[in-house]
Amino acid sequence: MADHGTGDRGPGGAGPVQRRRGQGELEAQVLAALRSSGRPVTAGLVQERLGGDLAYTTVITILTRLHAKGAVSRERAGRSFEWTAVADQAGLAALRMRKVLDGERDREAVLARFVTGLSATEEQLLRELLEQAGEEGEG
């Protein structure tokens, strides 16, 4: 069987077995690479910052998904784009949570189940954050 560059040579094969990263992990790594640059960068530079082990097309796919989620912005630069992080990892998680909530018909039931699953510490933190948000809305 041919080796297609996955790093997994199978039992008895030589070489390391690379762990397959999940989409969320890749998105977080791409966001971190964008944020660490401090300026708009090309997909090629993102690929370099990630160590070059991801295919360029994979980096483009991740950047495009992050753009669709509102986590990154892009500006035309010649024939390609320069990308900028808009959200951090916590912001990306919040966007995912929002997307799930937006996809449900009974939002009240979803929120109620979410809140009842929180620990006492998490519930107190949520109360404080809601209070802060309310104060900011008034000011």
Rank of each mutant, 00 (worst) to 15 (best):
L101A: 06
A14V: 09
A90F: 14
I62A: 11
M1K: 09
G117Q: 14
E136Q: 12
G91V: 09
G15H: 06
G44W: 05
R19W: 10
G117K: 02
S80H: 10
S80C: 03
Q18M: 11
E108R: 11
E128K: 01
L34H: 03
V115G: 00
G139I: 04
M97F: 08
R98E: 15
R105F: 12
S73A: 14
M1I: 10
E138V: 01
V110S: 00
G38E: 15
A68W: 09
R113Q: 09
V59W: 01
T64V: 10
S73F: 04
K99C: 05
V17C: 08
H4D: 05
T6Y: 05
A68F: 13
L50G: 04
G70A: 10
S119F: 03
R49P: 01
L26T: 08
A85F: 13
D3V: 02
R65K: 15
E25L: 04
T116C: 00
G139D: 10
E104S: 06
A87G: 04
R20V: 14
A94R: 02
G38M: 10
L50F: 09
G22N: 07
L54R: 04
Q89E: 14
E128D: 15
R74H: 09
A55L: 13
S37G: 06
K69F: 13
D8M: 03
G78H: 06
M1V: 12
R21I: 07
L101G: 00
R65H: 11
G24T: 09
G10A: 07
T42D: 08
A120P: 02
V115C: 06
Q124P: 00
A2H: 04
L95S: 13
V110D: 01
E104T: 14
G134C: 04
A120E: 15
F114A: 02
M1D: 10
Q89C: 07
Q47C: 13
I60F: 04
A109W: 06
A120G: 05
R20E: 15
T42C: 03
E27Y: 02
E25K: 01
R76K: 07
Y56P: 00
Q132C: 02
A87M: 11
G70E: 13
R19D: 09
L54V: 04
E27N: 03
E104P: 00
A112F: 13
T6L: 13
L111Y: 12
R96F: 04
G51C: 02
T6E: 05
Q18Y: 14
A112Y: 07
E128S: 15
